[in-house]
Write a protein that binds this DNA or RNA. Structure first.
Lengths: 194, 194
DNA sequence: AAATATGCTTGATTTTTGTCAACGCGCGGC
DNA sequence: GCCGCGCGTTGACAAAAATCAAGCATATTT
């Protein structure tokens, strides 16, 4: 199961992991199975683990005073789960992370990740690339959020991550887009007439 | 003028720069003055330089088909200007970066930044910290955009970056928040009555 | 100083999106 | 197999925000 992670690191870093490095990595990343609806993180807790998704899917979301949920992001195979702010700074999180399917995760604590980061160049390069990519992706989503209508945001999502629309229930896609389920339903209905 | 940058790097990295490193850095970062309304980057161009703001302020924005502008972010003293996607990947940008005041910038190309990154540990640490901070900040803005009303987003901005509201014209603040100038004007009018 | 542009406000109106409520379909649990 | 519930749809209505238009004060230019 760690094989997926090795491939990911070699791919992201453009380097090769020797067998010794692989052993080090496999020691620190604990494989854990989660069932659908289980939580990796709950509001108020400190995010102890970063999780690499080998198989499955999850959502990270907040709940406001009125009980409304807002999905900040999804995580699928080859993505990472966790709240970076809470994870790196040890502060309580305002988010929940819930598995949406039976999933296989590889978990690692901040300290251990730092150790790998310091000892294995490929891991360091991977982390750097991840952060930059995350930032670029975030920038795009911000731009979409402030400049596009609900319908345009949906079309944007269809282009960028069509698999999300197939994989996740429509009400969650709506939450991810920042619109109500009803609005998304109507958008889909009218999509052809334009 | 490079002193500000040295301080920034030492602060972010938690390390000290020796005089040799400072010379290396000063060699690669070119100081350049910009006047109000000058552009650092225009849509369609490749972002050749990252710019560190020593003094002044700028906005990064897009223009859509209808000619509407949307401000993705502001940059002030101690912040960086540039489109990371275009800068790192060499692709044409969809954004403009315009100086909003007479400004002093320190400019560096991607290649040169990479060199410093490879040779000076404090620079490497700074870059890492920057990327992570940027991502965390972006995450917050995304969350605000999908979960808060116009008025709540404005209140959020008042808490997080009150200086923006004092420093920039109100129509630009509105654009940054993703709302119309009229709406922001009305929000301010009604602010007391709640 | 006059002329011009810019930014802010306000009102009237339209458009977009959210909310509330009802209904139906399909799937999983029992 | 039946029951209940989650999920999507639809309609009627309400709320939020955008748009259009006018007017005014303040900078900026000349």
């Amino acid at each position: 199961m760690h094989e997926t992670l090795f491939k990911y690191i070699e791919d992201k870093s453009g380097m090769t992991l020797d067998s010794n490095e692989k052993i080090l990595i496999a020691e620190k990343f604990k494989a854990k199975k989660f069932r659908k609806r289980q939580y990796l993180l709950q509001e108020g807790d400190v995010c102890k683990y970063a999780g690499f998704v080998v198989r499955g899917a999850a959502r990270m979301f907040s709940v406001n005073d009125k009980g409304q949920e807002h999905i900040v992001r999804f995580g699928v195979e080859g993505w990472w789960l966790g709240d970076p702010e809470s994870y790196t700074q040890g502060t309580p999180t305002q988010f929940h992370i819930e598995l949406l399917e039976d999933s296989d995760l590889l978990l690692i604590t901040w300290d251990q990740f730092q150790e790998l980061n310091a000892t294995i160049p490929a891991v360091a390069a991977t982390l750097k690339s991840m952060d930059k990519q995350s930032f670029i992706a975030s920038q795009k989503r911000i731009h979409a959020a402030i400049s596009l209508s609900a319908e345009e945001r949906y079309e944007e999502l269809m282009k960028s991550y069509p698999s999300f629309i197939l994989r996740f229930p429509q009400n969650m896609v709506a939450s991810y887009l920042g619109i109500s389920p009803e609005t998304l339903s109507r958008i889909k209905k009218n999509a052809h007439n334009n």
